[in-house]
Amino acid sequence: MSLLRRPETIVALVLLAAMLGIGFVNPAFWSLDNQFGLLKSNVITGIMALGVLLVMISGGIDVSFPAFAAAAMYLTVHGMVQTGYTGVAIPFVVATLIGLALGAFNAFCIRAFRMIPLIVTLGTASVVRGLLLGLVGTSVININKMPPQLIEFGRTDMIDITHTDGTRFGLTAMILVYGALALGVHLVLRYTMIGRSLYAYGGSPESASRVGFDTRKTLLFAYCTAGALAGFAGLLHASLIWLANPRDFVGFELDVIAAVVLGGASIFGGRGSVVGTLLGVFLLIMIKNSLILMHIDTTWQQVVVGAIIVCSTALTAWRDRKRVG
């Protein structure tokens, strides 16, 4: 496919146009602290989107990851508070593993019941949220109780700038974590057989097993990675906002799926890329966060996001039909 026809190029162009447009309405858009803020808001959605990307390439869909993220985050923080543990690395490992295990449960149900992933993941999401809130607790662990090391970790900046008036702002180092994960997923998708098996399975599940892929492994990989990334992102989120709310991430799946679709991944499987997803996430977050800059009431946020989803999918559908016809 030529560079110009790639979905990534189109998203990039739309993104550029949107940036120019917003910057034109309000030049404050281009200020460094706004840009840094934007990048920071990308991190959590973006990490989860990477997981959803894998699932979508395999031809599935996952709406359970926000529940998994909440569970991994809350369980880990809860555990830290209970035991008084002060480290940072191990909690992140634990959160990731919780997400991974839950993802494995998804993969098992989808494989064993041969049920469409949307329904299965709706079910697992409900199970996990119910268990978390019903058994573990509903109270928010706020800044007073949050392990300080976690907060400190979340506050790590890689660039620190002091305004002339003395206020300081910085670019969070978490963007490096996000970047590293994105690079990792990209490399896996592009240069490993398990990554290629996702594309093969998403393109044609039957052919994939005929040529000799272990399709069980493929599914397991997709949903486990999605779960693991969600678990990791969940805890990271808590350390960024300094509180752990077991009811967090409700409705998050809509934004993340929208971002991945915006980034050119096909809901039918077999297509999608990390670069496209990064761009899709950035576009979505940017438009959501820039409404104030554009002097539009923030209550319009959801309407705008919905309209973007409808328009972009309508365009994709129109393009696909033209290609066939």
């Binding site: 709706l122 409900s126 199970v127 949220r129 119910g130 809130l133 019903g134």
Partner: peptide
Amino acid sequence: SNFLIDFIWG
């Protein structure tokens, strides 16, 4: 709790 009912539904 209401939440366990969610779990039961799922």
